[in-house]
């Protein structure tokens, strides 16, 4: 648990995550009010990372549920281990016969079996999936439900019980109440609008692309060996790329990939032939690459005129001397 917003920022920083006050406030509120957080924003701004860092900074286990179309209760919550149940019945055949000794008639035999059937529908035969794990865990955990927008609307409805009461119901056994209420982070890329019922139960956090200074700080933190000049240039270009109408706007993760790639190739500034070839780390579509190349050229041209602008004043003196 956090005791203040400053503590959130501090602890996150220790795990290389620069949390703005806005983010920290929501995280602090979530832990104080025990409410799930729905994080929205464009791809690659660190939504998933937020949960990871939260878990790491609290030294708690992170349980992750990746959502996809067709995800159902069986994959998310629990499943009966049919195979194990069958195996046990096979092995215990003799025992079953023993139990049935002395019964007369089918009805009595069925009754006898029925009195023992909770053996087969007990927690022993439940295969816990992420949600069940998070609920039944002895320690507090961080539960990350990633890309909830990819799951079906029915699944969202199914989550409601979990999110508001932190409990799940297994018909054969009963209701499991959370021993320690987990911190729940849901992320969404807004592929579709979440239902109001879900939104109502969550705190809402919208993370946008970082501004210039924030992005630069993130690069310095995550890629400490990157040349200072390179980092600045990359941020300038990426920031202007985001203003273009691209199919996939580059996120922070793409910026980091690019800086890492360039640093690995020992590139010191964007004025380099290798830069063109690494562009596909930030833009992922053919059409986008073209636009990015143009933007890059434009940026380099401007940068050069700025530089030569100062140099020409110097060289004009030389010319005077020649004359």
């Amino acid at each position: 648990m956090f005791s203040s917003i400053e503590e959130v920022i501090e602890r996150f920083a220790k795990h290389d995550y620069i949390a703005s006050r806005r983010i920290a406030t929501v995280i602090y509120l979530a832990s104080a009010l025990q409410k799930p957080v729905l994080v929205e924003g464009p791809a690659g701004v660190g939504k998933t990372d937020l949960a990871k860092v939260l878990a790491a900074s609290l030294k708690e286990e992170l349980i992750r549920l990746q959502c996809y179309e067709g995800l159902d209760e069986g994959k998310a919550l629990y499943e009966w281990e049919y195979a194990k149940q069958l195996l046990y019945t096979q092995i215990l055949k003799d025992k079953v016969t023993e139990v049935l000794v002395g019964t007369t008639g089918l009805a009595e035999a069925v009754d006898r079996i029925a009195s023992e059937d909770e053996v087969f529908f007990s927690e022993r035969f439940i295969l816990p999936r992420p949600l069940m794990k998070a609920i039944t865990s002895e320690e507090q955990v961080v539960l990350l439900i990633d890309e909830i927008d990819k799951a079906d609307a029915e699944f969202e409805a199914f989550l409601l019980e979990l999110l508001s009461d932190f409990q799940v119901t297994v018909p054969e056994i009963g209701t499991f109440k959370a021993k320690k209420i987990p911190l729940v982070i849901l992320t969404s890329n807004n592929a579709r609008e979440m239902s109001d019922a879900l939104k109502r139960r969550c705190l809402h956090l919208y993370i946008d692309f970082p501004n210039r200074e924030q992005e630069l700080a993130i690069i310095r933190l995550k890629v400490p060996d990157a040349a200072e000049k390179l980092a600045e240039e990359v941020v300038n270009v990426v920031q202007s790329l985001r203003k273009l109408d691209l199919k996939k706007t580059p996120g922070i993760s793409e910026t980091l990939d690019w800086v890492k790639a360039l640093t690995l190739l020992n590139v010191q500034s964007l004025d380099n032939a290798l830069v063109d070839e690494t562009l596909d780390t930030i833009v992922k579509y053919e059409g986008d690459v073209r636009k990015a190349q143009e933007e890059l050229k434009e940026y380099l041209r401007k940068a050069r005129t700025r530089r030569t602008g100062t140099e020409t004043t110097g060289s004009s003196d030389d010319k005077d001397l020649l004359n």
Partner: peptide, 16 residues
């Protein structure tokens, strides 16, 4: 003020 604002934003506003 900013904290208060963030608190209201997180609880009352659910659409970007």
């Amino acid at each position: 003020r900013e904290l208060f604002r963030a608190a209201l934003r997180a609880t009352m506003i659910k659409r970007a």
